[in-house]
Each structure stands twice: as structure tokens, then as C-alpha cells.
Design a protein around this nucleic acid. Structure first.
Lengths: 392, 392
DNA sequence: AAACTTTGTTAGTCATCTTAACTAACTTAA
DNA sequence: TTAAGTTAGTTAAGATGACTAACAAAGTTT
């Protein structure tokens, strides 16, 4: 039993209707109460009442009049995107990305800082604290208007517990990350795996907009995938879904527990750099290794072309396995896969057509290194809805 | 707009509450209105009203009194399992399984018939018609009390269109199967992939009971998997999810469109029989090939042991790929995998522990060749809820 | 037999949606 | 210019379905 007078389920109806109005208002800015009634299939009086309520709460504003369509001018409404804000934060390698965004998910201010070496839990939290203070200071954003933070971390994250397991190469493993950061910032925090956040980013603001069933594949330092089903991130039983770096692709060797996955060991950037030593005259450790191999192949390097084919072929094994399990409507490629070029994509598509019965649409990721950050913001927006902070 | 007076969402609340009561009544037979109020967290008057409504509709019955717990005797209620029935039908190879079940999913009568050779769409539909007529005749079940049929077919089924694509070895491809059968029987039909139905069967009545996130893997004539997420079958964008026979496992060869999948071509029964020729002194075409290899290995056949290890190892590749994508809580093995024995399962578990970060609980399927049929029945029960036929 | 318990029902209240009818404000055509 | 038609928003009354409170029915306990 939640309230009195009506049951939890009955309260739910009002909530659903309010959310429905809010949702339509987010999608269609500057519409009238009458428009909302049509969009939500609610009656005009009902919409009026709920809208008035939310105007009082500060979630919606009247923003002038629209053009008449043969009668009284409509009063245009807008979702109050500036009412509150959220923080997005992503740790990647030795850098920390931080941003404040409005309720629409638009970045208001952003900064990337390098983390001190050696990094540990304490210094990382300090970096977040200092970075956030700087952002608030610079932007003049009122901290009281922040709803919470979405935090992206490599490895397998326990969203509900707020801890991290299986994160080789970071100092986070086993720590109560969320609690510590919540204590330090005085704000609610939600943590999520970095690849999941990139997926969320592309889904909300990138090439995945409008596709509620998609799979995002990342091949870089590690190999991973994010899965969206019905507009929701699918996380699996132990939040280890999409850990396709552990697929058995390429030589298995004497794999034992705790090591990186087989696929990752054979075809992540680290492995590819090793293989490339033999085919590149000189290697630039800073720039993309796949781009270097592609360039070398284009300028007549046969060995480079052979290696490139081998890489694409094995990445395609991963894609084939992924799509035969999931059958997504859209597959988004990212990381080093961005550099294989049209020719590479064409090859992948050809192989897939030969191998699997249902080939998804394939697109390249569109948000670059912002994907995770944007995802972190949307993660926070989902976890801490503005309606939860209605009354100050 | 659905009704008058209340919106669709408001109607929804009543619907949710009715379903809630019905659900509790299915789980806990012979409970009182007061018990239901506690179980559903609704008020006693509300439960009384909804229950009375459903008694009138014939969905619930009062079945006598219970023991007093210090006050008035409770009137015990029961879900009217016998009010309606559904049909389950499964085509597998050259046989057709047919059954009638009550609303609890309990089989009332069942029969397996051999299909005529050569089979085509027409003869298959005739077989269903005749089989059903016989079942109705034998059981005395009133056809008017049937809600519909769940039909299992090999290949990729288009549930919404009611057609089948990619079904090598059957004559169904491209036919409007559902429409034709609906016309022939005069009953609504829902079609579903056979492995998905086995998954549903194990979920509702087998080893998967209580696990709302599970993966079912079948290795037999074909190789496939069924995926349940949050108690729902996950079907994918083109209803081709779980087609893991198309994973790239084992030699790829000159695979081109339309052929069986790579994994299937290398490690389905057909492929294993081919491989086994070299290691078995004599082969029984009728009985399980894996069992024969296991027996041979046990009686000292080193070549058989090597082959068995190879088979288990590659099946485990499939499992590793499947679980790294899905991270299920429970993995159910079936088909020929049932014959690998404790030693085989132990090996699989050991390999998985070495290869993937999150090893699911692994169990053998428990329903034998009934799994698909039971799944078909539950598929029909989900598709055609008894509440849809309230008023005669 | 009086007091307590538990079950189920009745009566009245409340929240929230709906429709119907209104006012407000604008456009269009004679 | 004015009457008729349209569209937006509001008000009022009614419907629905949940809730609480109180009671009746039918037991058990002391």
C-alpha cells in the first residue's frame, strides 16, 4: 500500500499520464495542451489539470502563443529543460571526462582531465570532486539543482551494489565505488560499464536514435558490446552481458581464469599491435593501429593487406556470433573498427550474408569519444528523473 | 480511447488487479478472498468485487469451506482450470505431436502421429485437422471451449505474419501457414520456432521454473537456442534470435547463403555421425550418436575419447559465446548434449570457468521430447488468455 | 454465555478520468 | 462589418474503481 484513498496501481495511472505528457513534451517542443491531448490520447481537461500541476512544480513553462489554426491561439508549452541538471563522468584509461547537462541531455559544460599517476580509488574520487567543483564554478550552475551523477567505468559493474568486479588495469576492483563518491559529492550516483554507456549515448543522441533494439560493438583496448532491448539496456544476470571479449575466437591457448578473454587476447588493439610489428616498416604508438595497417595495405603492402583481412574476418566472426544470438535491427561498430573503411565494411557485410540468416543494418558509431559521456548523462537522467525532485 | 467513463490507463488498473488475483489463484489453489487480499495487497472489498465478477464470467469457482482460523470459515476459491482449453502442436521431423491442455497447462490428452511421405503444406494441415478431430472425439472435449492453438515449427517463424522463412528440409517456406490452419480449424493459431517452444516448456514446467532469465541450448539435427528475458521469449528483430547454429565455430569453408550455419555444419548430429564413422566399429543409425561415442570411449576407445573431447570442446565454444553475450542466470542443455554424462558437464564447466567471467548455473533439460509440446501449450495460453473469452 | 477473531459485505469517500457544455479568441465569407 | 464557423482552454457533472470504516456472519476461546 503506497498512499491512502487509492491503491498503488491507481496512483500509477496518474504517474503514467504525467510521464506521457512530459515525454511528448520532450519529443515535441512548443506544443499546446490541445496537441498534447491528441498525442497522449487523454482528454483536454485531464491534460490541462496535469499540465497546470506540473507548471506549479516548475517542470513545464508556458512560452507564448502559437499561430491560430482558425480559432483561438494555442498557448505553447515547453518542458523546462533548464530546471535541473545531471553530471556525466567517464573514466577511460588515464583520463576523466566530466560534464554537466540539462534535462534534455544537452551538454552545458564539459572538461577532460588527466588523472594523476599512479591512480587509486582515493585519487580518482578527488579528481571527480575537484573537476566538478571547477565545472560548477565556471558555469555558475547551482549545485542544488543537480539530480545526480552517471559514472562510467571499465569492467563489470554492479549497478545495484555500486561496486566493480573484473576490471583488470584499474584500481577499482571490489571497492564500494558508488557509496564513496556519493559521500564525497553529496549526490546520488549510478555506475555503469563504459561500453554500455557508449551504447546508451548512440541510442539517445547518435546513429541509434529511433532504434529500440540495437547492439553496439566496440573493439579497442578491450572488446565489448552493449545491448538495447525495447529501449532498455540489457545487463544480464550478473551484469556481464555483452562481454564478447570472452568469446572463443582465434587460438584458445592455455586460457585460465582471470585473464582477458580469448577474442580480446587475439584481436584487441594490444594483440593487433603485436601482429602488426611484422608488417609495418615503422609503428606509431600514438595513432590508430588499424589506420596504419590500412594505409600500408593501400600503398601496396601485401602482408598488411593479409593481416587486415585476417583482422576483419575475425571481427566478423564476433559479429556473426553476436547477431546470430541477438538478431538486432541495427549493429553499431566503434573503436578501431571505425578505421577499416568502406571496403572493410563491405567485406564484413558480404561475409555476414554468406554466414547468417538475418543480417542487421550496420552503421559506424557517430559520437566519437563523446559517446560514453553522453551515455553517462542519459544514464543519470533515467536513474534520477526530474519528477523525483518536484517540490523543493 | 477504449471505453467510456475511464481512460484506457484507468481500465488498465482494473485489468492488472484482475490478472493479479488470477495469477495468485493459479499459484495458490484453494485460497479465500481474504487471503487473496493479502497476497495482492488489495483491499478485501476490492478483491470481493473482482472475484464476484470473475465467478459470473466462469473463470473462478467457490469450492467449499476451509478450516476456521479462529473466526468465520473462509470460502475457498479455485481458478477454473477446466473452463477452457488450448491445443499444442509440434512438427518435428516426420512426426506430429498434438495435445489438448487445460488452462493450467496440464495435458488432458495427447497423441503422436507419423506424417505421410512426401510431406507438403496440404497434407500437414490435413494431419492436424484429423488429429485434432480424433483428440476431441476421444476426450469428449467441447471444441467451443478451445481458445486456440500453439504450433511449433522448425526454422525461423514470423509470429506476427504467421509464415516461415529459412526452414530447410520442410515444405513450409514462404507459406501463409497460420492463415491456412486457422481457416481449416476455425480457431486462432500462433506459430513459434520449435526451440523457442522447448525453452518455454522448460521455463513453465521443467528445470527452468522460477528462472525468469535463462538460455536454452539445443544440439541435435540442428543447433539452436531459446532466450528468456524477464519471463518473456526474446525473438529479435526478424525473429531470428538464438539461431546459434550460424555461429562461426569450427572450419568455415566456402560457406554461401542458404546453407546451414557453420556451427551446425560442423557439430550438429549429421556432422558428428560423419566424424564418428572413423572411430566406431559399427554405427546404429537409430540410437543417439553421442551415446554411442561415449560408450565406445568408456570401453577404451581412445579415438572415440578424442572425438568426444573435440565435440564437447566445440559445444563449449558455443556456450561460451552465448553466455558472454547474454550472461544468463541459468543455462539449460538439451538434445544430444543430454548424453555427454557428468564427466562431459564437468569438462564444460571447467572450460567455462577458464574462459568467461560469469559462469551460469548449468542444468540438463528435464522434459524430454515433451518440452516442445508443453511449450506450444503455454504459447497458446499466453497468446489467447482465458479472459479474452469471458462472455460467451 | 461473553468476548474475541476472522471472513465477507455494505455504505460512504476520494481520486481521477470522462463527456458535455461553456467561454475566449481567432478566421472567413457574405 | 457582421454572422458563422473553428480551435483552445475551462468548468461542471458523472462514471469508475480504488479505499476506509463499520457491520453482519460464523466461527473459537475463556
Amino acid at each position: 500500500m503506497i498512499g491512502r484513498g487509492q491503491t498503488g496501481n491507481a496512483k500509477l495511472v496518474k504517474h503514467i499520464n504525467r510521464e506521457g505528457i512530459l515525454h511528448q513534451l520532450k519529443e515535441n517542443p512548443r506544443v499546446s495542451r490541445a496537441d498534447l491531448a491528441k498525442l497522449t490520447e487523454l482528454s483536454r481537461p485531464c491534460v490541462s489539470a496535469l499540465v497546470d500541476e506540473m507548471i506549479v512544480e516548475g517542470l513545464i513553462s508556458e512560452v507564448g502563443f502559437g499561430e491560430s489554426k482558425g480559432g483561438r491561439k494555442p498557448i505553447l508549452l515547453e518542458y523546462n529543460f533548464q530546471a535541473y541538471g545531471v553530471i556525466g563522468a567517464v573514466f577511460e584509461g588515464s583520463t576523466l571526462q566530466l560534464a554537466i547537462a540539462n534535462l534534455k541531455g544537452e551538454l552545458l559544460i564539459q572538461r577532460t582531465t588527466c588523472l594523476p599517476h599512479p591512480m587509486n580509488g582515493e585519487t580518482a574520487i578527488q579528481s571527480i570532486e575537484q573537476g566538478l567543483a571547477a565545472l560548477l564554478n565556471e558555469s555558475g550552475f547551482d549545485k542544488a539543482r543537480l539530480l545526480g551523477m552517471g559514472l562510467g567505468l571499465p569492467g563489470i559493474t554492479q549497478r545495484s551494489e555500486g561496486t566493480v568486479s573484473y576490471a583488470p588495469s584499474t584500481g577499482w576492483m571490489g571497492l564500494p565505488v558508488r557509496k564513496e563518491i556519493e559521500a564525497a559529492l553529496g549526490l546520488p550516483v549510478v555506475i555503469e560499464n563504459d561500453v554500455n554507456l557508449m551504447t546508451l549515448g548512440e541510442f539517445h543522441k547518435g546513429i541509434g536514435v529511433g532504434h529500440s533494439n540495437l547492439v553496439y560493438m566496440y573493439a579497442g583496448t578491450g572488446i565489448g558490446a552493449g545491448i538495447m532491448i525495447d529501449g532498455q539496456l540489457y545487463r544480464g544476470a550478473k551484469e556481464a552481458s555483452g562481454e564478447i571479449g570472452y568469446m572463443v575466437i582465434g587460438p584458445v591457448g592455455n586460457q585460465t581464469k582471470g585473464e582477458y578473454g580469448v577474442f580480446e587476447r587475439n584481436y584487441s588493439v594490444r594483440a593487433i599491435r603485436e601482429k602488426a610489428k611484422a608488417v609495418l616498416p615503422s609503428m606509431d604508438e600514438e595513432s590508430s593501429i588499424v589506420k596504419q595497417i590500412v594505409d600500408q595495405a593501400k600503398s601496396g603492402g601485401e602482408a598488411a593487406q593479409t593481416l587486415l583481412d585476417d583482422i576483419c574476418r575475425h571481427w566478423t566472426y564476433g559479429i556473426a556470433n553476436l547477431t546470430s544470438v541477438m538478431d538486432p535491427a541495427l549493429l553499431i561498430l566503434s573503436g578501431e573498427m571505425l578505421h577499416i573503411g568502406d571496403e572493410g565494411v563491405h567485406k564484413i557485410q558480404q561475409w555476414l550474408t554468406d554466414w547468417v540468416p538475418s543480417v542487421p543494418r550496420i552503421e559506424m558509431a557517430s559520437l566519437g569519444d563523446q559517446a560514453g559521456l553522453i551515455g553517462a548523462i542519459h544514464c543519470a537522467l533515467e536513474a534520477f528523473p526530474s519528477t523525483s525532485k518536484q517540490q523543493r
